[in-house]
């Protein structure tokens, strides 16, 4: 682990990232936006109800909304941070020198990927104190927060690895970024749409729920839907009942995104350097 973290690319990337004022202003902007939202929500709830109380159910609603905001943040920031990691080195003409060093392709990809993920994790952790405000009012368990954070970690690893993959495959950063955002939108929006369609098709004309593996599949790879099932386990039961599948949705999500992450990293490592043996 120590050797992994002593990765030269990782150390250099972190150094450069934290020398950049944009990183700090980004975190500042995020925290200010979150604070305004949380305090605004508490203020509005207490003043509109007129009771001056903030009930556990309202606290849970706030928690749910913040969870979605944070998911949105991960989905939108991760491509921006990762989709230029390799292509920008190519554009700046620093990649060739990096590729002629003794570092393995895995070390380079791992360093690039980890530095971006580390920054996102810092952003999420920096938001924890604001997030934790909900504990003051009850309604949310620390275990639930832990589960949701694991969900965030997997999601950002998956989107991040897709970003790194496109950045490796595509020469230009702008194209790589558009492709990564496109993939992200497919996974979050289009899969939701497919879920609705497949549910409609499978249930059409049937009084009883019908076996629909496709509905299960689309639900299990859609981050907003899976987040909803983590916040409201009853929703997961409903989807499983409708699709008549018993395998937990979160497990399907975990398997799909773990495989996706591993495959994207594997392909990035394979494609980073030219295959010198190829012609033989």
């Amino acid at each position: 682990m120590k050797t992994l973290l002593a990765n030269p690319v990782l150390v250099k990337e972190l150094k450069l990232r934290f020398r950049n004022i944009k990183s700090f202003s980004g975190i500042l902007f995020y925290l200010v936006a979150m604070s305004v939202f949380v305090f605004g929500f508490i203020f509005l709830t207490t003043s509109l109800t007129g009771s001056g109380f903030f009930r556990p159910t309202e606290s849970f609603l706030l928690f749910s909304m913040m969870s979605y905001i944070q998911l949105g943040l991960i989905l939108f920031i991760t491509p921006g941070l990762t989709a230029g990691t390799i292509s920008s080195e190519r554009e700046k003409q620093t990649l060739n020198i990096l590729l002629t060093t003794s570092q393995t392709s895995f070390q380079i990809i791992f360093g690039k990927m980890t530095s971006s993920v580390a920054f996102l994790l810092l952003m999420i952790v920096a938001g924890l104190p604001i997030y934790s405000l909900v504990f003051l009012y009850g309604g949310v368990s620390p275990g639930q927060i832990a589960v949701i954070f694991m969900f965030y970690l997997l999601t950002l690893l998956a989107i991040g690895s897709i970003g790194v993959l496109f950045s490796t495959l595509i020469r230009r950063t702008i194209v790589s970024m558009i492709t990564t955002y496109g993939t992200m939108i497919f996974l979050t929006v289009v899969t939701g749409f497919f879920l609705l369609i497949s549910l409609q098709i499978s249930q059409y004309g049937n009084a009883m729920p019908n076996f629909s593996p496709m509905s299960y599949f689309w639900a299990s790879i859609n981050p907003p839907v899976v987040l909803l099932t983590l916040l409201q386990p009853a929703v997961a039961d409903q989807i499983l009942n409708l699709a008549t599948v018993t395998f937990p949705l979160w497990a399907g999500y975990f398997i799909f995104y773990s495989v996706l992450t591993a495959a994207a990293i594997f392909l990035s490592v394979k494609r980073l350097r030219v295959n010198m043996h190829k012609y033989k």
């Binding site: 250099k12 150094k15 450069l16 020398r19 950049n20 700046k92 003409q93 620093t94 060739n96 020198i97 002629t100």
Partner: peptide, 12 residues
């Protein structure tokens, strides 16, 4: 190896 065209990292 020293390439004919190369870039450097900013802020390093």
């Amino acid at each position: 190896y020293m390439p004919d065209f190369f870039g450097v990292y900013d802020q390093l």
